[in-house]
Design a binder for these strands. Structure first.
Lengths: 152, 152
DNA sequence: GCCACCTCCTTGACTCCTCAAGCATACCGC
DNA sequence: GCGGTATGCTTGAGGAGTCAAGGAGGTGGC
């Protein structure tokens, strides 16, 4: 069991814990998942709140079909629309609606709070976030028997 | 967009990339997923290679039903068996078989190589793994527009 | 101008996990 | 010892994503 492997496994473990926290808060307050939020956020960062679906997939680390399926509910509830390209009939754009942008602003507050809580719980020092194992041990709970002893 | 939120999203993004790499290598060479490997590894760390299923679930960050479903294929191919508790008929143990232990040893080599590659690609300094954002940016590719500039 | 090939997107079938429900068993108060 | 509650596990239904196949549209060689 190398240190690098240990770090990798802690990273995986940390992510599941983290996603659960975001999903809980975002779901309760805004009815969206972390994946939904991330997609909206990514769109909001693009010029015009508008991206080709294939580029959005790339940006989110999904496949094109993942985007098709993930965006469908957001289109149904009016946070995202679909636009076509005048020059190339193959491409479809995903576009953040004004409603989507408003709702995203609220979600952003929630998400900011959640992440602040996550990094506030143990004495996180933004400077000294420390080594990866220590980091992921604090973040991810008790997945594997302790490696680096967490600071007192 | 706070730094903590940025870090959280990078963590999520990094994990998907990392899992893909492990799954690819472990799947190709040993026919198992990273989740399978992690379960076997966790079992191997327990005394006698033996854990109550509910404790294994806890250790892996899954639900009990996740363990039932995930272990089923590993039982079918003989890497894990099921044992009962003489004192408490409710509990079932998951036990690593000798075959399972052998196969795990091979997987461990592969997994070690994969993690070494992941942490070797950019000049990872085990000491100075650095701040979380820099870490996850290097690890996770180009999910979000750059935050901390990666070292030259 | 047409044919082969490429790209963008969606769909069907599947995997992996969750939650909720259910069954079996253990434990506690009396 | 008996009823009520708590625990351990499995199962059905469903969500989120993958891959492979396929339709529709663009593009370049000749």
């Amino acid at each position: 069991m190398t240190d690098a492997l240990d770090a990798s496994l802690r990273l995986v473990r940390a992510q599941t814990a983290l996603v659960k926290r975001f999903d809980a808060s975002l779901g309760r307050l805004h009815g969206v998942s972390l994946a939904d939020f991330t997609a909206l956020l990514r769109l909001s960062l693009a010029p015009g709140g508008r991206m080709r679906r294939v580029d959005l997939a790339e940006a989110l680390g999904l496949t094109a079909s993942g985007v098709t399926r993930g965006l469908a509910p957001l289109e149904r509830i009016g946070l995202v629309t679909r636009e076509t390209d005048a020059r190339d009939a193959r491409v479809a754009y995903a576009v953040l609606t004004p409603t989507g942008r408003d709702r995203l602003a609220d979600m952003l507050i929630t998400a900011g709070q959640v992440s602040a809580e996550i990094f506030a719980a143990p004495p996180w020092d933004a400077q000294d976030i420390g080594t990866l194992s220590a980091l992921l041990t604090r973040l991810g709970g008790t997945g594997l028997p302790g490696h680096g002893t967490p600071p007192p």
